[in-house]
């Protein structure tokens, strides 16, 4: 192996022989924070903050396993079925289990036009979902009434339930809906978590999952 230009920041692993034990010295030689942490890591200890732990345990778990409620109303439902299909696989996001019952679902994807007769049913289903629950309004009809501006269609599902992500399109391509679900995942990861009386707000770090 050629000699690399930059010095190797990691200590070389000793292939054989006794494991190298860092010398315990009484002299307080200045050692950088990073160096100290690396030494700790090699001893099998990792430092983090409670906030990141809670974020991982709660938000990441929620984000990577969102279980949608099977709530397809109209044409958008077919594109929603297509993301469950083999070409646009939503199983990669942990969300392929479309629950039949609202009591077991986290996410309600309102896929299709909401008619005035269906609106109380939708509200009842939303109320039956346990917290934390999220709503994606898929398509133009669910977001704002779409091409139907008349007596029979609710002009936007946000008139009856709070919506987290709006996905435009008529119908939105499956890729667009998956983008909407990814945006929802970002939103979940950025949301504060309350543990008892403490509130942990995730630090916004670019590029860190």
């Amino acid at each position: 192996m050629t000699e690399s230009k930059t010095p190797n920041p990691y200590r070389p692993l000793v292939p054989s022989g006794a494991p190298e034990v860092p010398p315990v010295s009484d002299a307080l030689e200045p050692i950088s924070e990073e160096q100290r942490m690396r030494e700790e890591v090699e001893r099998g200890v990792l430092f983090t903050s409670v906030g990141s732990m809670v974020n991982w345990a709660v938000n990441q778990s929620r984000a990577n396993a969102i279980w949608p409620l099977g709530f397809g109303l109209a044409c958008c439902a077919i594109e929603m079925m297509a993301i469950a299909g083999p070409r646009f696989d939503i199983s990669r996001f942990g969300a392929e289990v479309f629950r039949g019952s609202p009591r077991q679902a986290d996410l309600m994807i309102v896929a299709g036009r909401v008619s005035v007769k269906m609106a109380p049913v939708l509200r009842q289903l939303y109320d039956q979902m346990p917290s934390p629950k999220y709503v994606i309004s898929m398509g133009a009809c669910a977001s704002c009434g779409g091409i139907f501006n008349n007596y029979a269609i609710l002009q936007g599902v946000d008139k009856i339930v709070p919506v987290d992500v709006y996905v435009p399109g008529c119908p939105p391509r499956p890729e667009a809906l998956i983008h909407g679900i990814m945006k929802l995942q970002e939103k979940i990861l950025a949301s504060p978590v309350e543990v008892g009386t403490l509130t942990f707000r995730p630090r916004r770090k670019k590029g860190v999952a």
């Binding site: 501006n149 008349n150 029979a152 002009q155």
Partner: peptide, 22 residues
């Protein structure tokens, strides 16, 4: 097709479309 408690006959010419101003 309409809810049971709907009042009015929507397809009559004097019933409004129910257009909501954008």
């Amino acid at each position: 097709l309409l809810p049971e408690d709907w009042v009015g006959w929507p397809l009559r010419k004097d019933s409004p479309l129910g257009y909501e101003e954008v």
